[in-house]
Simulated assay, not measured.
Amino acid sequence: MIKIERLVKTFGTTKAVDGISFEVSEGENMVLLGTSGCGKTTTLKMLNRLIEPDSGIISIDGKNIHDQPAELLRRGIGYVLQNNGLFPHYTVAENIAIVPNLLKWDKAKTQNRINELLEKLHLSKDYLNVYPNELSGGQQQRIGLARALVADPPVLLMDEPFGALDNVTRSKIHAEFLALDELKRKTIIMVTHDVQEAFELADRIALMDKGKIVQIGTPADLLFNPKNAFVSNFLKEQHLQLEFKTITLNDIWEHLPRVDKKTNTKQLSSEADVWEVLENFKFSPRESLSVINQQNKEVKSITFDQLMAAFSQYKNHQAHE
């Protein structure tokens, strides 16, 4: 869906983006991760021509983005900003309707689409006639997402979309983000400097430094097969927590005991990551949790010690591959 070839952007004597190339498949969520000044936001803004590149080629759905006027390009790309970018003197309804109005949708079509998105984003219709400053940060961010999604663009660009939110609100919106069916159909490029966020939301991560992509791959690729010392050091402080959030029960299934013992607790899916399973333990004596393999419907009962043993076996196996 998106192809970037030898992209370069220089500001004065600084090469903000230094000849990078990568592709993003249809329906994939690619996260550009890195410290401030690594070139990730500049890269993102070149995709919808908020910044023009010095050289290189950007193609979306097989078409060079410079073969059409910038304003037409942007109408077909959703864009979500860190501070939500809502117009303060427009109501919520007017903010969401900006692109439909540019596309000359009739009022009924626009209203139906707005109502549909509000329901999906768990927002009351009572908010339609209020102004952004009357909303909480989380509500504003959901409205910003609704505005980006309203015309159903195939591509969504997100620049630090959750960076201004507190940790509790951010965690809740992450869960909504992953569950939202609207986003499962989108090709997404997201910029963040938050390592945990990148690992939770990305299909693949492009780790950047000094205008270059150091390594591109799945979260597991970066964790278990770091390309160099920069990648290892970048993830070092949060490595264990990232492993908990990256490794799923499916990954460690063969290392879990085969004893099938009924428990009174709900069955957790084998698609859950180790972190999610840990959150379900109450750590009472002899406690065990039921887990079900979604592929073969096999059920296992595991204790905390058995989970940790399987996790360690899997890691050892990865280290020796």
Rank of each mutant, 00 (worst) to 15 (best):
D126E: 14
P285Y: 12
M208W: 02
H122K: 15
L156G: 00
Y90G: 13
Q68V: 00
R6D: 15
E5V: 01
L32N: 11
P226R: 04
L240F: 08
L73Y: 11
G27M: 05
H122M: 15
T263M: 11
S25D: 13
N293Y: 04
L180N: 05
V299N: 09
K282N: 05
L165Q: 06
L117W: 00
I173N: 09
P100E: 14
M308H: 03
Q141C: 08
A151G: 10
S312P: 09
M46G: 02
L289C: 06
V214Y: 11
D194K: 05
N250G: 03
G34A: 06
L268Y: 00
H193A: 03
I57S: 10
S232M: 07
E94S: 13
Y131R: 15
L268K: 00
L156M: 04
N167Y: 09
A206N: 08
R6E: 14
I252H: 01
F230C: 02
I60R: 08
K63T: 02
E23W: 07
Q196A: 02
T42P: 12
N280D: 11
F224C: 13
K120M: 13
A319F: 12
P219L: 07
L33D: 14
T263C: 10
Q196R: 09
G39L: 02
K120R: 15
E176R: 03
E271A: 01
I216S: 06
I189L: 01
N101T: 08
A164Q: 05
N112A: 13
K3Y: 09
D126I: 10
E94T: 15
K9R: 12
F311L: 01
D273N: 15
N29S: 12
G56E: 15
G27P: 07
D61S: 12
E71I: 02
L121H: 06
L103P: 15
S232L: 07
P132F: 00
I60L: 12
T218S: 03
K245C: 02
P154S: 11
R170A: 08
